[in-house]
């Protein structure tokens, strides 16, 4: 016992050399907690209290309306297509970038990240400039009776643009860490390229892939700025859930607006919970190696 005491004192001294006086500590914690409560917790609570302010009946009625259902349906369709495109692109880009050496790789990485730094409004604008009536391809589209802007294809394109880096961003570093030796072994044992990917590469990166899809889906369902520019806000036809929130809010239908908003907030919360679980899995997977 007497032998362990000095050691404990030493650890204590070390600890205190790495910490601040108690008063400073309390002030920092109080500032952090107050700031996050005001800016993050309260807005979330406001969404749900306003949505339920006239009772659960009014809440459910707002969600069961024709317009709400059409918006939910469109949001699900658009997100599904965007996630699918994101998957194809993400897996292809990750394979090409992480398993091979070629000139211009850094530049390609920068191009993939580009949509993250473009304002959502500009992400919608570029498609209006391309496919709109006054756009570069506008006359040709008009002549062939193809509508992209103010229609579902435009919404899908704009959503895919803003979400494009998500899966690739998660997959590239993971697959780079994995190297190529396992795949080479599988191939030398006679497995086909596709089988190698399916049996060797994919199991190694599945949590990262799921993580990318999760983030992509959340952003796709919640995108507002880009979609708002290309949608045309045709009621029951080109309104996604975030757009319907705006319309109802501007019409002072607060309960209905916040009811739809509460669904999107739930989506965000569920996404966060799954994200934390996946991060745990990713870390464990990493430390296994």
């Amino acid at each position: 016992m007497s032998e362990t005491l000095p050691l404990r004192d030493l650890t204590k001294a070390k600890e205190s050399s790495r910490s601040e006086p108690a008063l400073v500590r309390y002030i920092i914690i109080a500032l952090a907690v107050t700031f996050l409560t005001i800016f993050v917790v309260l807005p979330l609570i406001v969404v749900f209290t306003t949505a339920f302010s006239r009772g659960i009946g009014a809440y459910l009625a707002a969600l069961a309306g024709e317009e709400a259902l059409a918006a939910i349906r469109l949001t699900l369709i658009v997100a599904a297509i965007s996630v699918l495109l994101n998957l194809v692109f993400g897996i292809a880009a990750a394979w090409a970038i992480s398993k091979f050496e070629f000139p211009g790789k850094t530049f390609l990485n920068t191009l993939i990240d580009l949509p993250f730094s473009v304002s959502p409004v500009i992400s919608g604008l570029v498609f209006v400039l391309l496919f709109g009536a006054q756009g570069l391809l506008g006359p040709w589209l008009l002549a062939n009776d193809i509508q992209i802007i103010f229609a579902v294809p435009g919404i899908v394109l704009a959503t895919t643009f803003v979400t494009f880096p998500f899966v690739a961003r998660e997959m590239i570093p993971l697959m780079q860490d994995q190297g190529t030796s396992e795949e080479e072994a599988a191939l030398s044992l006679g497995a086909s390229g596709l089988k190698t990917f399916w049996r060797v590469t994919l199991p190694n990166v599945k949590w990262g892939l799921l993580y990318g899809v999760l983030l992509c889906n959340a952003r796709a369902m919640g995108e507002f700025g880009a979609v708002s520019v290309v949608s045309g806000h045709i009621r029951g036809e080109t309104n996604t859930m975030p757009l319907l929130v705006e319309i109802l809010y501007n019409e002072y239908q607060f309960v209905a607006a916040f009811a739809i908003a509460s669904l999107l907030a739930m989506l965000a919360l569920i996404t966060l919970v799954i994200k934390i679980i996946l991060e745990g899995r990713l870390e464990r997977h990493h430390s296994d190696h």
Binding site: G222, F224, V245, A265, T271, I276
Partner: peptide, 24 residues
């Protein structure tokens, strides 16, 4: 929990954040 909710501004759709902050 506070560590987890730091990501809320990333995850919450911007229109939802907009109406919530306005109401607040």
């Amino acid at each position: 929990i506070f560590d987890a909710i730091v990501d809320i501004p990333f995850a919450l759709p911007t229109a939802v954040a907009g109406v919530a902050l306005t109401a607040l």
